[in-house]
Each structure stands twice: as structure tokens, then as C-alpha cells.
Simulated scan of single mutants.
Amino acid sequence: MDTTRDRRPHLAIGLTASLDAYLDAAAECGGAVAPVLAVLRSTPPAGLLPLPGSGRTAERFRGLARIAAVDLTAARVIEPHVDAVTILAEADAPEPEQGTTWGVFAAEAPDTVLLAHRERDRWVLSGRKPWCSLAGRLTSALVTATTPEGARRMFAVSMGAPGVTVEPAHWVARGLADVVSGPVAFDSSPARPVGGDGWYLDRPGFRWGAIGVAACWWGGCLPVLDALIACTVKRPDDAILAARTGELYRRLEAGRLALEDAADRIDDDRVADAAVLAHAVRGTVADALVATLDAARDVLGPTALAFDEGLARRCADLELYVSQYHRGRDDASLAARLAGGELQW
């Protein structure tokens, strides 16, 4: 059962050959980040995927899904890189130079604080930032920090700048095992502001980036559906298998439709509340991902999960990747927004 094969023929509509190098790197990486970082360094940062709202948002989401369908580690490396390119473009900041690799470090934790302040004629960062994925292997990052006024603001930093220290991560994850996330310490490290106070979180593009992550989740599920379909061909009389396969297809099709509808709304500027749209799409895709993992466990069973390296790694990757979706909190936030306005139907 080959669950890691190249899915390019399945999702080829609307995409250009410019993505081929990334798909090739994904197919060859086997869960390792080095081949993916190498191809990011060798190509122009702005040439990978269209920007959200450019009239080609569906192409962007399909590109992310295609990469994830080949390898989720590759998607987990490429998605924040292209998100950083988008953020810089939206801020009218200088385009990243070729040869650089980017992350976006915006997570917060109660026991870590990163402060930004002006020191003579420049901004500097001091403190610690949690959950900095691949910090020790990237050249650059966009980092959120708290200004003296108490606002969150985004800054561009070089990971090799003075005072930047990548701390040990003690990463023990079985999924996305090579995408190490850990804290980074800053000690009066020089930084360049990107946007004003609160801009990063307030802009609609923050939500479009979140939907892009959901596109990666969705694409990552497709090889599992392939495996179920292959089983139904071999066991045509297994009604339970057929039912679970049909159910999973329905759930993934709902996710696909949600992603395509979101892309159309974004491009047509038909979004009354960006957060409502993002919460709805991410929740729909996350539900499909949970159903995918359930089907892998219940239908494909321990034989596949124990002896099919590609499938076992994919399921572990999916489980960790979707854990960044906080179902209860996000649904509560969605309900609060619905209570304050009209439904977008």
C-alpha cells in the first residue's frame, strides 16, 4: 500500500510548473527538512505561490494542499515561509532576498515575554519567544513582540543577529519529528518593524494565513483516503469498509468546498468578518482530519500503522499538525462573533 506517492495528477488544475521543484523536494525529503530548505534557498521567495486576494487565492490553497499531500514535513516548512513573504508584501516591506529562509514566530506563552523598544535609532528585542519552529535552521524570521505601549507588533529579525540564541528544544514529537520547535532568546537584538502596533493580528491576511494552514491539513489527508479506496477495490464485499470510505470522502469534499468558497470570497472581497470565515473553514477541515485519523486506525488498522512507514508517519504528522487548532476556544470565539453581527449566508 503506497500512501506517499506523488499526487500531482489529482490536484493539477489551476497550478503552474513553478511548483514542481517544491513537489520534487517534498517527494524526496522523507520527513527531513534539509531538502526542503535547500529548494527554498535556491528559488526566488516571491515566485512560489500567489498572494491571497490576488485573484488566485484558490491556486495558493491548492498549491499548499498538493505539497502536503506529498509530504507534511515539506508543507510545515514551506507554509510559514510563504506566509512570511505574504506578510512582508502586505506591509510594503522589502521583498526577502533569494537564499533566505523564513519562519513566523507569533505564539505566546504565560512564562515567556518578548519586549521591543527603541534604542537610539533602532528597534531591539529582549526576552524569550516560545514555539519557534526550525529556529536553528532558518536565516530569518518574523517575530511578534510587545512594545512599550503594551501593543503587539511584528518585527523582522536575522537569526544570526547579535544576541539571538536558539535554546535547546527537547523535542520528542513522533509527528513532524524534524520540524523542531523551541524557545529563542533575544538580548538587545536588532529588529526591523513590519507594520504598526497591532497590524499583524488586525489585518485580514492574518486569517487568510490560518486558512492556508487548513489547506495543508486537507491535502495531508488525501493519501489516507487513497489507501481506503484501494482497500475497497480489494474487498468489494466489505460493506463497513465501503461505508467508512464514503463517509471520509464526504467529509474531505466538504473541506475542499469550504476552501474553494473561502478563496472565491477572499478574491471577490465578499468577506464580512474574516475571523468568522477562517474559524468556519478551519473547523470544517479539522473535523475531516479527525475523521481521517479515525478511519486510518479503525479501518486500515495496526497492520498499516505498524508496517507502512509512509502511512504511519503521515498519521503522526497529521495528529501533531492539527493540534494547533484549539477546537473549544476557536468555536467559542466564532460564537461570540456570530452574536455580534449578521450571519454570512
Rank of each mutant, 00 (worst) to 15 (best):
M1S: 08
T4C: 05
T4A: 12
R5V: 03
A12L: 06
L15K: 06
D24N: 05
A25C: 03
L37N: 03
L40D: 04
S42K: 09
P45C: 12
L48V: 13
L49Q: 09
P50N: 01
L51K: 03
P52S: 15
R56M: 06
A58R: 13
E59K: 13
E59M: 10
F61W: 15
G63N: 08
A65P: 11
R66T: 13
T73V: 15
A74D: 09
R76V: 08
P80K: 04
H81L: 06
H81N: 04
A91H: 05
P94T: 10
E97C: 07
V104D: 00
A106H: 06
A107P: 06
P110Q: 06
D111N: 14
R118G: 05
R120Y: 11
R122V: 09
W123I: 02
G127W: 10
W131H: 14
R137C: 01
R137G: 05
L142C: 05
V143A: 02
T144Q: 03
A145T: 00
E149P: 00
A151K: 02
V157K: 01
M159I: 08
G160N: 06
A161W: 03
V164C: 04
A169E: 06
A169I: 03
H170K: 15
V172R: 15
R174C: 07
V180A: 10
V184F: 07
F186I: 00
A191P: 02
A191N: 04
P193D: 00
V194P: 01
P204R: 08
P204T: 09
F206A: 13
G209F: 10
A210G: 11
A214V: 12
A215H: 13
G220P: 11
C221Q: 07
L222Q: 04
P223R: 05
V224G: 05
V224H: 08
V224K: 04
V224P: 05
L225A: 05
D226M: 00
A230H: 08
A230S: 07
C231F: 03
A239L: 14
A239S: 11
A243P: 00
T245Q: 02
T245W: 01
G246H: 09
L248T: 07
L248P: 07
Y249L: 14
Y249E: 13
R250I: 08
A258H: 12
D261R: 08
A263Y: 11
D264N: 13
I266P: 10
D268H: 14
V271E: 04
A272F: 11
A274V: 00
A275V: 11
A275W: 12
V276A: 07
V276H: 10
T284Q: 13
A291V: 07
T292G: 10
L293G: 07
L300D: 01
A304F: 07
L305G: 02
A312P: 13
R314H: 06
R314L: 05
D317I: 11
L318D: 09
R327S: 09
D331G: 11
S333G: 15
L334F: 15
A335S: 12
L338H: 14
A339W: 04
Q344V: 12
W345C: 00
W345V: 06
